[in-house]
């Protein structure tokens, strides 16, 4: 059987408060991404993670500013279950295996921000919030990240992020086909049908932030929709 994990937190204002709320509402997993403005705020990040882990007992992924195995260690010791790395892994892929060898592959999430580049007819990796091109083929990078020891891929479509037009299903399908590790879909969810589409396209977990953040839908409504669509998911009253 395949379970669909639900993830519901990104760019949140008061992460601890929101984490508590989403946990209470039935989220299956939480992701903190870039919750502090700069890498100078790493101590803040560690403290937020520690306070969250004191009272929220579901898996927690933390990303943003992780540049070394030591950064990862601090977050994991504070109570994160996984760390997400993005541009630091692109700059030096060995960082993936360094973290994986020390803490296990299950701890390492490689975040990939991809955008369709029509001139070359492929998805390429972008950094800095989707502004800076790398000319790296996103599918190749996903495969390479797995080879380096990534335990999960957090795939964000920069074309869809913030649009509410739904996940980039073609991108999801291609990365799902090319890799053998869990795939988290991110970017573009605007309604509950988008979640169902994402699960059917091969995502192992569905990340949605704004629909929950702005109260468009509750997690209970999202789970009910997935369940009635025949997708196996941990029920809300579990």
């Amino acid at each position: 059987m395949k379970g669909i994990n639900f993830i519901g937190l990104k760019d949140a204002g008061d992460p601890v408060e929101l984490a508590r709320r989403y946990d209470g509402e039935g989220a299956d997993e939480l992701v903190f991404l870039d919750i502090t403005a700069s890498s100078d705020d790493r101590d803040t990040m560690v403290e937020v993670v520690a306070r969250t882990a004191d009272e929220v007992f579901i898996p927690l992924t933390v990303g943003g500013g992780v540049r070394s195995a030591d950064d990862a260690r601090r977050l994991l010791r504070a109570g994160a279950d996984k760390v997400s790395i993005n541009s630091a892994a692109l700059a030096r892929p060995a960082l993936i295996s360094e973290i994986a060898e020390t803490f296990g592959t299950q701890c390492v999430v490689v975040a990939i921000d991809a955008r369709w580049v029509a001139e070359v007819g492929r998805w390429e990796v972008f950094t800095h919030g989707g502004r800076r091109p790398t000319e790296i083929n996103a599918l190749d990078w996903a495969v390479e990240a797995e080879r380096w020891g990534a335990g999960e891929i957090l795939l964000t479509s920069m074309d869809r992020d913030g649009t509410a037009d739904g996940y980039d299903l073609a991108l999801l399908r291609d990365v799902h086909e090319a890799t053998n590790i869990p795939l988290v879909a991110s970017g573009g969810v605007g309604n509950l049908d988008h979640l169902v589409e994402g699960a059917r396209a091969g995502a192992d977990a569905l990340l949605a932030a704004s629909i929950f953040h702005f109260g468009t839908y509750t997690i209970a409504e999202a789970k009910a929709k997935l369940t009635t669509s025949g997708i196996t998911i941990r029920p809300i009253d579990a």
Binding site: M1, G3, N5, T105, P182, D204, R234
Partner: peptide
């Protein structure tokens, strides 16, 4: 199946 099993399960 994909490994690791990293998910909720019954």
């Amino acid at each position: 199946v994909r490994l690791p099993q990293m998910q909720w399960n019954i």
